[in-house]
């Protein structure tokens, strides 16, 4: 293997009879990686392999030098994952507690945890909701909270699976700004929003479980739209 940050070597995934991915080989070092493709093409499966939520049926995966199948715990400490359904990612009852959850197990004083949490909430415009029940937020605010909580753990790699699927224009723009403009870490984002894909450094396109196309975003997106015209 080449030693890239994300490496797939002839990876296939089957759920029972159904093949979700087959024969995927790719090495990725780009900072912002967009994943596009039709419904059911394997985007989520690919994304979920990056932190070991899905294991390969055959082939080899390495992420940040780790094997997700056997080193999932170490890997998840370094990979932040944003799901598309904001309801299901909230673990703790209130907004501030949910963000602070990302510091669980770190050797920090209570005061320091509180200060850092407050600063993070401020950055995402959630300060006034700090002590509100997390589920009383709107969908867009919940997704901001989810992103805030994930970034708060200071991951080396951020994986987002359709992070704007349920959002309105304003919140889509905010998430896009946080993910694409302000993020300094490596990002993998699966999306149906071509504006997000266009802003990436490389785009991969999946079709029918195979890696169908990859390369410069504008070109890959153009071919995708042409095929579905």
């Amino acid at each position: 293997m080449s030693g890239a940050r994300i490496e797939f070597d002839d990876v296939s995934v089957a759920f029972g009879e159904r093949r979700a991915l087959h024969g995927v080989s790719v090495a990725l070092d780009q900072r912002r990686i967009g994943i596009i493709g039709s419904n059911g093409s394997g985007k989520s499966t690919f994304a979920r392999m990056l932190n070991g939520l899905v294991a390969p049926s055959s082939g080899q995966v390495r992420v940040l030098g780790l094997d997700p199948a056997h080193q999932a715990k170490q890997l998840r400490r370094r990979v932040g994952f944003v799901f598309s359904n904001p309801d299901a990612q909230i673990i703790m009852p209130t907004v501030a507690e949910d963000v602070a959850f990302s510091l669980r197990g770190r050797e920090l004083s209570l005061a320091e945890k509180r200060d850092r949490t407050a600063a993070a909430l401020e950055r995402f415009g959630l300060t006034e909701h700090a002590d509100a029940p997390a589920h009383s937020l709107s969908g867009g605010q919940k997704q901001l909270l989810a992103l805030c909580a994930v970034l708060f753990g200071d991951p080396d790699l951020v994986v987002a699976d359709e992070p704007t699927a349920l959002l309105d224009l304003a919140n889509t723009r905010r998430i896009r700004r946080h993910l694409l403009d302000e993020l300094s870490q490596q990002l993998v984002v699966a999306t149906h929003d071509m504006r997000i894909a266009a802003q990436c450094d490389i785009v991969l396109r999946f079709e029918n479980g195979g890696l169908h196309d990859q390369g410069e975003p504008a070109a890959v997106i153009h071919r995708y739209e042409r095929d579905h015209a």
Binding site: N51, F83, A88, Q89, I90
Partner: peptide
Amino acid sequence: RHADDLADAVAARASE
């Protein structure tokens, strides 16, 4: 389904 999704989120976030 919520339980399923939540389990994934916990696995992804509670990494100790």
